[in-house]
Design a protein around this nucleic acid. Structure first.
Length: 271
DNA sequence: GTACTTGTTGAACG
DNA sequence: TCGTTCAACAAGTA
């Protein structure tokens, strides 16, 4: 499940491997993948050079030299693998003029490629109404307070997962951030003390940065640009550890459903 | 066969 | 209006 740290890892990988390369051709094996006609998509990207790679929330943006951009969402099981092999779940392949390639796999077919003129990318993201990027400088403690204030009656975990509040946090890192801060996912925002908000703010940034350092969590299909697994899973404290011992207090990790999502926490030390 | 997994959207409910 | 829950999407695992 690529969340912010996983998508960031892929972005860094793309910058390293395909920045400056010229796209010779694209093979789209799943027409549903692209936002409009396959032939038009192919025409729009062929011959263009990848001039930049960016990330916003959980989406990747490939800027092309011909003033087009390809916005990629990996959703649950999307993979971008440099020099990867074609397999059963391969949905697209970018071929570069130097003979290398970039393979897109997605066995659940939720991911998409959207072609947008580069100067309309901003507009696209404005429509999505994403909240601030938690690792950007403008995401200050004051900023966190301000957005929390907007939804005092919301439970903290679903709030963290809503991309309109903060961008890039999904199921794994909301559970992990709350554990780190010692706050129960069921708590209402208005009941959080100033101290707790501060702690949570620090935990979010700490956990996300740590996860990026380990190239993300390969819980499901996620792999990095070279097809390697992220190394953060052994560092997960609660996510998918149902019934196991809490590393902090020895309590038992519990699993509940919250906002339709599996939620893991330690009832003993997350209050 | 059934339940469950998950990012996102949109509908339905109280 | 607001917050929450559920279904849908896909396809595989337990």
């Amino acid at each position: 499940m690529p969340e912010l740290p996983e998508v960031e890892t892929i972005k860094l990988g793309l910058l390293d491997k395909v920045l400056g390369k010229e796209i010779k051709d694209v093979d789209i094996k799943e027409p549903k993948l692209v936002s409009f006609e396959v032939t038009k998509f192919k025409k729009a990207v062929s011959g263009a050079v990848i001039s930049n790679v960016r990330r916003r929330a959980k989406l990747l943006i490939l800027d092309l030299s011909n003033k087009n951009s390809v916005i990629i969402h990996l959703k649950l099981t999307g993979q971008l693998i440099y020099q990867g092999k074609e397999g059963k779940s391969t949905r697209a392949i970018f071929y570069f003029t130097d003979g290398t390639r970039l393979v897109f796999n997605d066995w659940r077919k939720f991911g998409y490629f959207k072609l947008v003129p580069t100067d309309k990318v901003e507009e696209f993201f404005q429509k999505q109404e994403f909240g601030p990027e938690p690792l950007e400088k403008n995401f200050t403690l004051e900023c966190f307070y301000k957005i929390l204030k907007k939804k005092p009656k919301s439970k903290i975990k679903p709030f963290l997962m809503d991309q309109k509040n903060i961008a890039g946090i999904g199921n794994i890192y909301s559970d992990e951030s709350l554990f780190d801060a010692g706050i129960s996912p069921l708590r209402l925002i208005k009941d959080l003390s100033e101290e707790e908000v501060k702690k949570l703010y620090k935990s979010i940034i700490k956990i996300l940065k740590e996860a990026i350092r380990y190239k993300g969590s390969s819980v499901d299909a996620y792999v990095d640009i070279e097809g390697g697994k992220g190394q953060f899973v052994p560092h997960l404290k609660v996510y998918r550890r149902t019934g196991q011992k809490c590393f902090r207090c020895g309590g038992t990790i519990k699993r509940i459903t919250l906002g339709g999502r599996g939620t893991h926490f330690c009832p003993k030390c997350q209050k």
